[in-house]
Amino acid sequence: MAKGLTKSFKKALWVYHCNSGSCNGCDIEIIAALCPRYDVERFGIRLVGSPRHADVLLITGPVTRQMEDKVKRIYEQMPDPKAVICIGNCGNTGDVFYESYNLVGPVDNILPVDMHVIGCPPRPEAIILAVAKAWVKLETLEA
């Protein structure tokens, strides 16, 4: 796990996943991280169905015009303190979708991103590491 994390985690971490126009590749890897092979639930990391319950926002995709305001709304609905993790190359830099008439990304332009996970798609291990690092941030903020 990430450096700086206290030995006994202070709280369970709930994540909300938002797809802003990605290809699904990152999204299935997020689900794969939750399933038996990687099983993050044993650390108390859980995927929740509403942003109002979440500590961490996992965002994938290069943000299409249609999704811009919705992504902002999700971010505003999350309670403080919160962390944002941008997963996948297309959300971070645009990647193969680097130019378009219908994209407003990368995610940096719209939300303050705490963690960038590179990969197309990143492996589940990389996603878990990013979530653990976000944990450090949240624990530091609370302390």
Partner: peptide, 26 residues
């Protein structure tokens, strides 16, 4: 999107193409 400009057709190759809206994410 409903507020996408009228008279812009992304697959056209003439002046009604989407070049005005084009953005480089880099």
């Amino acid at each position: 999107r409903d507020d996408f400009p009228e008279g812009v057709y992304p697959w056209r190759r003439d002046e009604t193409g989407p070049e005005k809206l084009y953005r480089n994410l880099h």
